[in-house]
Write a protein that binds this DNA or RNA. Structure first.
Ligand SMILES: [Zn+2]
Ligand SMILES: [Zn+2]
Ligand SMILES: [Zn+2]
Ligand SMILES: [Zn+2]
Lengths: 140, 140
DNA sequence: ACTGTAATGTTATATTATATCATGAGGTTT
DNA sequence: AAACCTCATGATATAATATAACATTACAGT
């Protein structure tokens, strides 16, 4: 998946610097959202400078370029499962195991845009987070 | 609208105390989301005790009973436009004027639930926030 | 070497939210 | 009425999340 991202960076003339790459890797290794200060701790463990702006800048960059998404209801961050592609993600947040999965449900966002268009509102971006129980947890 | 709420409170044996009512009224008088500390200031202006827990407790109560919704992407709160009814709201947040409107689009949430069900995820609650430009702002 | 831009370092502070324990106001039971 | 229970509020402190501001460095283009 880093391959896609490398290509995207070259094409768009942006740089995945060491700290940005490290944050991305940390998020890709997790199935739960990580808070900025958790990320900061992990960065410190990995030998990076550990002041808050370091983490927030890396996260801002990653979110801006679509490599990472912010989970608003948790103030946490997750790696995108389809980076580079322009999409309106839907997140499934499990109340039992805290896992966050990005659903491939792209239809929803356009349905939503259309429904809201009828009210005169022009949608530019949607935040869709579903809380519930994931299939793994449902089995137990 | 307070009528519905009064009835709901009686039916459910819960109390809309002065501070809770005041917070609700403050939110009903606004078309934008208000942050907890903004509410705290307004409470102080109205002669109430102004420590953070006062506002958060009132907000927790109001959200818990569906009289108020939290806008996760803003850490702000808005009064519900259909309190008492069990619903999955969709919010339209204008980037220009900051107004927050609750859309009557109830279909979206059930569509979403069904789409996610296919992945094995059982939706209990959805957070849907659409950012864009409201009809008023579009005209200008 | 000079210059412009993006990135990082560093310190301080702003904003949002909760933990904890004490006090009070109303009902219910005895 | 007194004792008791429950819910709500008062009050202090602190945790968790996020940004402002300014200094320094890296590095590409001239
Ligand atoms: Zn994504
Ligand atoms: Zn789970
Ligand atoms: Zn509502
Ligand atoms: Zn507007």
């Amino acid at each position: 998946m880093i391959k896609n991202i490398d290509k995207y960076c070259k094409d768009n003339n942006i740089k995945l610097t060491p700290v940005r790459l490290k944050v991305l890797e940390l998020l890709q290794n997790e199935k739960c959202g990580l808070g900025a200060y958790r990320i900061l701790d992990l960065l410190r463990d990995a030998g990076f400078n550990s002041q808050p702006p370091v983490a927030y800048r890396a996260l801002d960059f990653l979110v801006e370029h679509g490599f990472v998404h912010k989970i608003e209801s948790q103030n946490s961050f997750v790696a995108c499962t389809d980076p580079g592609a322009h999409h309106s993600p839907v997140f499934m947040i499990c109340k039992k195991c805290d896992s966050v999965s990005e659903a491939p449900a792209s239809a929803t966002a356009s349905d939503l845009s259309e429904a809201l268009m009828a009210t005169g509102f022009k949608v530019e971006q949607t935040i869709i987070e579903a809380e519930g129980v994931c299939s793994t947890c449902a089995d137990t």
